[in-house]
Design a protein around this nucleic acid. Structure first.
Lengths: 140, 140
DNA sequence: TGACGTTTGATAATGCTTATCGTGTAATAG
DNA sequence: CTATTACACGATAAGCATTATCAAACGTCA
């Protein structure tokens, strides 16, 4: 995706965020990094443009962007690691609110089928499906 | 799954692990907790049986179990949070070794189809597929 | 432009996890 | 059954990733 300063101003206005030099640089870095970077990775990229930027600023703005819906974290279970004793192939039902996880048996889903070739040389070990939503207890 | 002391001894022998009171209790706790617990959750459960157990022992043995293949961590990306700017529905190709992530477009996969009803009251927001394996660069 | 609320940078604090180290215990051989 | 030895345990310090704090600087809007 291409960064567009005008569009970024619009996004900030829409979410009630001030347009700062740092925010622009952080958002631009995020768009340019196509490997799903961590906060540290964004920091590295942004520092080339604003060497004096604080790591805390990067973290704060990532959090702000996630809260505003401009960004998403890849995993819902980041923080403490969640463990799994069921080593058979299976899938998960996950509540976005309470982070509860329920196993879905492999047989409960039609098998995952790829339409396109994967990148050359990638050898698949398993496929894991996350069905993400709101559980009954967390529904309003 | 049911805990079986004899079977646990077998597993330990198979992986060259000593059978200790603590390991048994930790493994038993893991099998009894069906909500994909964190280390802290396991600690809470095990402490009912062995109040003097150290949190470090719980962490060390979880690590040992994961390394031996008795257990798995749910997320490959636990540690630092990975970010995502692509908010359109899509999927991921993930390398177990280098943790690289590549987006798969929604159209590259046959849609996920459930065979069985989900728990009552669960409202699905989206489905995310992780195709997990070894990328070309990490292949031996 | 001036006043106000927000954001920034520096740094301290927190949470989760791993490392260290002296003591204790399981495994193995005798 | 006991001695030996390597591995595991408990207590605690250390290490990352992340969040909180607070004074100074900046963006916004009148």
């Amino acid at each position: 995706m291409q960064f567009d300063a005008e569009q970024f101003r619009g996004l900030c206005a829409e979410h009630g965020l001030a347009v700062t030099h740092q925010r622009q640089a952080i958002y631009q870095a995020l768009l340019s990094l196509h490997d799903h970077p961590s906060a540290e990775g964004v920091y590295g990229k942004v520092r080339k443009r604003i060497p004096s930027i604080s790591l805390a600023t990067v973290y704060k703005n990532i959090k702000t962007f996630v809260d505003s819906g401009l960004l998403r974290e890849m995993s819902l279970h980041h923080g403490s690691a969640r463990l799994e004793t069921n080593l058979d192939p299976h899938h998960h039902l996950v509540c976005v609110q309470c982070k509860a996880i329920v196993d879905l048996e492999n047989a409960d889903l039609e098998p995952v089928r790829l339409k396109k070739k994967l990148p050359r040389g990638f050898s698949v070990q398993r496929c894991s499906v996350e069905v993400i939503g709101l559980c009954a207890r967390c529904s309003p």
